[in-house]
Amino acid sequence: MRLDTACFVAPKPKVPSMPTRRAFLLAGGMFLSGSMIGVSCGYSAGYAAGKSAAEPKEASAAKAPEFDLSPSGDIELDELRRLAVKAPLDELFERGLLFLSSRVAPYKDDVILWHGVDRMSKEILDNPARRVEPSVGAVIIAQIEGTARPAEPSLRDRVPELRKRLAEARRK
């Protein structure tokens, strides 16, 4: 019996380009780096968005301090002042006629309530989508024309535009 050598051709085993441990460390490092970059970008974007959203509030809050909304001892007046200064515009317009008639009498001389007239007239001009009862619009104009305080010339300047806007709303 004779033994012959035989050779078998086998594919060369592929040597990993990188040892598994090193690859794991590299991937982990990249993941951590990406996470850190993402967190820092997200924080920056969130901070910027939060700051811009907070600015209008700060601006409106900056207006508010000129009004003293501490309890006056008159519940009705306090509620009307709240409507004038703090209440959402929807609520102010919903109770517009009550607010406007009360501003004329008995609270004709209350300066804070004028802020409600200011807000309503500004909203009518700035927001075309705002639905305004014709009667409310007419009373706003009448109040501004008839009894607007001398310190509020800007209100009178709005009257022509208010008339135009309310006439348009009536035609619709």
């Binding site: 009705e76 509620e79 006629l97 009550l98 406007l100 008639s101 009360s102 004329v104 009667s135 409310v136 007419a138 009373v139 104009i141 009448a142």
Partner: peptide, 20 residues
């Protein structure tokens, strides 16, 4: 052309209508 408000009741419970 004058706008008038007619009010019944008192305070926050008053009811108002507008007439021309």
């Amino acid at each position: 052309g004058t706008i008038l408000i007619l009010r019944a009741g008192k305070g926050l419970n008053s009811r108002n209508v507008v007439i021309e």
